[in-house]
Design a protein around this nucleic acid. Structure first.
Lengths: 108, 108
DNA sequence: ACTTTTAATCGCAACATTGCGATAAATTAC
DNA sequence: GTAATTTATCGCAATGTTGCGATTAAAAGT
């Protein structure tokens, strides 16, 4: 007898979808994902070399992508090897394509 | 001879994808889109009635979705009628599904 | 005319994001 | 051991986001 509104914003599916979308919500992070798709594997320095951003900034974007579960980062000696995380990318595909079909069904 | 980094972050496709993803990057906005898909059409008040958020907050989320091109809002007398915007939803589907296929191809 | 209804906007507070340079931590090379 | 390399983290500034209540603006009902 406390709830009056009927839509919950804590639905795990919606939360996860929003988190993934948020991680995609910056051009640099999309560019990083595409780069990882091309090269399969990248050190942080490889990415910094290629993006017009400072190393610390790239490192932050990598951290965001990692905590959204979209990439993995394994320490290899001095460096860290970043890869796409298949599980996360599957979530991205399934959740967002499910959402967009749900939306497109009624509006088009 | 000013550019040294090879990846541009001003690629319009990447920018548009990021903008769409950013608009999806909050649970309330995803919930609003789903609600519009269900009901085809909503006034701001319908949405406020159903979400655990104040009217002003809902209005702000609607503004964000509208400026990302995902919904339209037509004034009808005192009220505003919100709908999914087919063009925007098509962008959402094509850009994000294109991105996720591109990513999933190499990682899975 | 006045009140009610609806939605947008303002003002505010709290917090998050983006970006950078500088620094720290850890491994590798000498 | 010392120096060089690589990445993460810190500190900082600027800006953006999220949320609310209060107010404004505009239309509709009385």
């Amino acid at each position: 007898m406390t709830k009056t509104k009927s839509i919950e914003l804590n639905d795990p599916t919606i939360i996860r979808s929003a988190a993934i979308a948020k991680a995609l919500g910056h051009p640099a992070r999309i560019a990083i994902l595409k780069l990882l798709a091309q090269r399969k594997t990248c050190f942080c320095g490889d990415i910094t070399e290629v993006l017009p951003l400072a190393q610390s900034t790239v490192s932050q974007h990598l951290k965001a992508l990692k905590s959204a579960g979209l990439i993995t980062g394994e320490v290899e000696g001095v460096r860290t090897c970043y890869c796409l995380n298949p599980d996360g990318i599957k979530d991205l595909k399934s959740l967002l394509s499910e959402l967009s079909s749900e939306l497109i069904k009624t509006c088009c």
